[in-house]
Computed example of a mutant assay.
Amino acid sequence: MTIPQPVRKQSFAPYLVPLLVGGLVAVALGVYGRAHTPTGYAVGLSGFSGTLAMKAWLATGSFVLALVQIFSALAMYGKLPGVQAPSWTGTLHRWSGRVAFLLSVPVAFHCLYALGAQFDTTRVLVHSLLGTFFYGVFVAKMLSLPKRDLPGWALPVLGGLAFTALTGLWLTSSFWFFTTFGVTF
């Protein structure tokens, strides 16, 4: 005769904390962007003809590195048929993500500090909402990384949401800039 073992209930709190913190980050950025008075100017990086060109190129760099993130993740998890991921794929994935994030910081800083969250046109509204969402889901993904007992779908979903938001950000900013003003530095 065997004694039934008690069913161990798994707490969802460890999974919810990254999502709640990410949500708070997104809301805080949106509130800050909407509540503060935009300055109209921010620090620019030398080598660019203007702030918009700087933002367009840095965002394009982030987007290209996000593509590296997608393909390296697919290779690491064996989701690319016939592709054996080299041993350095994990390092490529981590560093491309770090650099993509670093490239996005001056862009986000300028958007929030100099322009604020604006809702006057559809493109700018979508861009503002995607920007706050991107940083919120990014924080949730980063906080989820050390959790080893997450369901197998959690990180791909968070990464996919971050990539989707970044794609929308690129389309509503860099792509718009390049098609409106031309490809300039």
Rank of each mutant, 00 (worst) to 15 (best):
T2H: 14
Q5F: 11
Q5S: 13
V7D: 05
K9P: 01
K9L: 14
P14K: 08
V17L: 14
P18Y: 07
L19E: 00
G22N: 12
G23C: 12
L24N: 00
A26R: 07
V27Y: 05
L29M: 15
R34I: 04
A35L: 13
H36D: 02
H36A: 09
T37G: 02
T37D: 12
P38E: 07
G40R: 10
A42S: 15
G44K: 11
L45I: 15
G47I: 09
F48K: 07
S49T: 14
T51E: 09
L52G: 02
M54D: 01
M54P: 04
W57Y: 11
L58H: 08
T60Y: 01
G61L: 03
G61N: 03
F63R: 05
V64M: 11
V64K: 03
A66E: 00
A66D: 01
L67C: 11
Q69R: 05
I70T: 11
F71Q: 02
S72V: 07
S72P: 09
L74A: 15
L74H: 08
M76Q: 09
Y77H: 14
G78V: 06
G78R: 11
L80M: 09
V83H: 05
Q84Y: 00
W88N: 14
H93Q: 09
W95S: 11
F101V: 11
A108Y: 04
L112A: 03
Y113S: 13
L115N: 06
L115Y: 02
A117W: 08
A117F: 10
R123N: 15
V124M: 13
V124N: 02
V126T: 10
H127P: 04
L129H: 04
L129N: 04
T132G: 10
F133I: 12
F134S: 10
V137P: 02
F138M: 15
F138W: 10
A140K: 05
M142G: 05
L143V: 08
L143M: 15
L143C: 13
S144P: 09
S144I: 08
S144L: 07
L145V: 15
P146I: 05
D149K: 06
L150N: 13
L150A: 13
L150K: 12
P151H: 01
L155N: 04
V157E: 07
L158E: 00
A162C: 12
L166E: 00
W170R: 02
S174Y: 04
T179K: 06
T180W: 03
T180L: 05
G182H: 08
V183E: 06
